[in-house]
Design a protein around this nucleic acid. Structure first.
Lengths: 145, 145
DNA sequence: TATTGTTATACTCTATAACTATA
DNA sequence: TATAGTTATAGAGTATAACAATA
């Protein structure tokens, strides 16, 4: 053993980088959210679809994808799984487009997902010291758009 | 066409959720960083390894993984690719462990990666309005650990 | 006993190209 | 012409289980 302190993670030299910290924080929080949503047999992307469709009408697969930044092609297996699970149904808008709507089971699952995410968001904010808390969402939005 | 406003992304009902905004901001920023590092033929994980190993000595594959939150098993293909690219080499510590060290080419690539990430981090911070900026890193660290 | 390095495997997310049909 | 829905495919990250060899 050349260096006996080798195994002690003294100080992460990358921790001071906002971009790196952003990635680590997002990974940690999303892993926690995924764990909680798994109790409802939902992935994060599926819960997002439920919440989005629950508040809108006549939302097509493509429109959902644009909102959530998921490509058209990747919406196909996502919505297929949700349809197989009985959470959503497709209703024709015209001969080209279909509206994604929630089934009764989907609405019920949405209620449960809303409770989980509400608790999750509250827990997340509570971890941030009060003086930093009001600045968090505005800072994120500045990066997002 | 049932709803002519269907295609207009009026207001994302999920945008107010800090967790959702955290994910979107991290995705957007990491996509941008990945794009910039790609000009150096580096992935984010590879640049992270370069920066970590560049500041330490006798760091084993397992220790790097613990620092970067990458599992042992997933370090294997990562380091293999970097070794094939001539960026790192392995030096025996004992008959069980190997130290990951930077080759000359690795040190050169690290310098380039440092310039890219320094610019990236500065650009990231500049996008955040001044009054929110000092609160960003502390808030992220509160979520991370 | 615990840890290192490794192999194998599988799942999720993401990205691109291409095609058909319809607006 | 542009858009919707789809298929196929590939890359990247991540997760678990298992194994041999060594600390």
């Amino acid at each position: 053993m050349v260096n006996s302190f080798m195994e002690i993670p003294l100080l992460d030299p990358l921790a001071g980088l906002p971009g790196y910290a952003l990635r680590r924080a997002a990974n940690a929080m999303m892993a926690e959210l995924a764990r909680r949503l798994a109790t409802l047999d939902l992935r994060i992307s599926e819960a997002s679809v439920l919440m989005l469709v629950g508040e809108r009408r006549d939302v097509t697969s493509s429109a959902i994808g644009r909102s959530l930044d998921i490509q058209r092609a990747n919406m196909v297996p996502l919505l297929s799984r949700m349809e197989s699970a009985g959470l959503i149904a497709r209703e024709p808008i015209d001969r080209k487009s279909q509206a994604i709507v929630l089934t009764d089971a989907g609405k019920l699952r949405l209620k449960a997902a809303d409770m989980v995410t509400t608790t999750f968001e509250a827990d997340l904010l509570e971890r941030i010291p009060q003086e930093h808390r009001p600045h968090f969402l505005p800072a994120l939005h500045a990066l997002w758009d």
